[in-house]
């Protein structure tokens, strides 16, 4: 039997989380010490029958109470601040992150790299590159957990969630579903393979060439007839989608939303949910015609539309995937 107390740490975040955990362990030991050492002494010294002085102390106890209320309070603020700071860092992916799409379904993980390469219950990533996972679910809630990276994110049906990491150590590591999802929950596991950039590039290029996510999205955009209404010169009045991603969108009723992935996704399957100000609700729902993977490809294409320059990750030097995207605005 293998005996291991400390898990491997294979990402930049993992090391930071471990420091935090080490600090928390010290705090725990500190409190255990200041509670149980005196308690042990009192229990021994003041056991019944032990002839020691028991005359009550005549002191004002409120000062003691204030003292031992304040000390933990201040200490918890420190822990809170540290934890929250790191959490914000974990929630804020660097700009140059490469997006990999993850969808959970009972009981497997399906992934697609931007270059089009697909994987099931496996994730290949290069050392030293920031990878951002865009996660969703086709059925119930799952959770994408990679212990050695100290990251975990629920996969929630109907929305995109995100986790990112930068792997630091090549190797093969566990990947778990950590949110209970039904009968085969404990079978929804797989492997994360962290590779040297060159090996990763070879892996990516192996097998038959695949359509990139953006190319697939564009194909769908035309096949489904989206371009018919959303093109600049269309007769039907529909909002333009060029450069829409990340922009504020005014809605009927006065609210303003940001055009994020979820907004784009929901506008395809539930167009009546959020009507853009000044437009009519003419668009049919595409619910049922597209699976989550195709929806994500469309979303990726829409995000790409109107970007002046190619996505950042393609300029990341070695290890960058070489792929060609047709990018004329429709």
């Amino acid at each position: 039997m293998r005996f291991q107390v400390f898990p491997d740490a294979a990402s930049t975040t993992a090391v930071q989380v471990d420091w935090l955990l080490a600090f928390l362990s010290l705090v725990t030991l500190f409190f255990l010490g200041i509670i149980f050492v005196p308690m042990g002494v009192f229990l021994y010294r003041y056991r019944r029958g032990n002839p020691v002085d028991r005359t009550p102390l005549n002191i004002s106890t409120w000062k003691i109470e204030v003292f031992w209320t304040t000390v933990p309070l201040v200490l918890t603020f420190v822990i809170f601040g540290w934890g929250a700071g790191l959490y914000v860092h974990m929630k804020t992916p660097p700009e140059d992150a490469q997006e990999i799409y993850v969808v959970g379904k009972q009981w497997m993980w399906r992934l697609q790299h931007p270059e089009g390469k697909r994987e099931i219950n496996a994730l290949h990533v290069p050392v030293g590159r920031t990878v951002k996972l865009m996660i969703t679910s086709e059925d119930v809630i799952h959770s994408f957990f990679i212990p050695v990276f100290r990251v975990k994110q629920d996969a929630v049906p109907g929305r995109y969630t995100m986790e990112w990491f930068k792997a630091t150590k090549a190797g093969t590591y566990h990947l778990f579903c950590s949110e209970y999802c039904g009968t085969q929950h404990s079978g929804m596991i797989g492997w994360v393979t962290v590779m040297e950039p060159k090996d990763y590039q070879d892996w990516l290029n192996s097998g038959s060439p695949q359509e990139t996510q953006i190319a697939a999205g564009e194909r769908l955009f035309h096949q489904l007839g989206c371009s018919g209404c959303h093109a600049e010169n269309s007769k039907v009045r529909a909002p333009s989608l060029v450069g829409l991603y990340g922009k504020p969108v005014p809605l009927e009723g006065g609210t303003i939303v940001t055009a994020d992935e979820r907004y784009l996704h929901d506008s395809i399957v539930m167009p009546a949910k959020q009507i853009v100000f000044g437009y009519e609700n003419l668009m049919p729902s595409f619910e049922g015609q597209l699976n989550e993977e195709q929806l994500f490809q469309l979303v990726q294409y829409l995000k790409h539309l109107g970007r002046e320059q190619p996505p950042e990750y393609r300029r990341q030097g070695e290890g960058a995937a070489q792929f060609i995207v047709p990018h004329e605005a429709p």
Partner: peptide, 18 residues
């Protein structure tokens, strides 16, 4: 005290659901 680990945002991400 181990509840403090779980109340700490960044630590909870690793420890929750384990």
């Amino acid at each position: 005290l181990t509840g403090l680990f779980l109340a700490t945002l960044a630590a909870d991400i690793h420890l929750t659901d384990t």
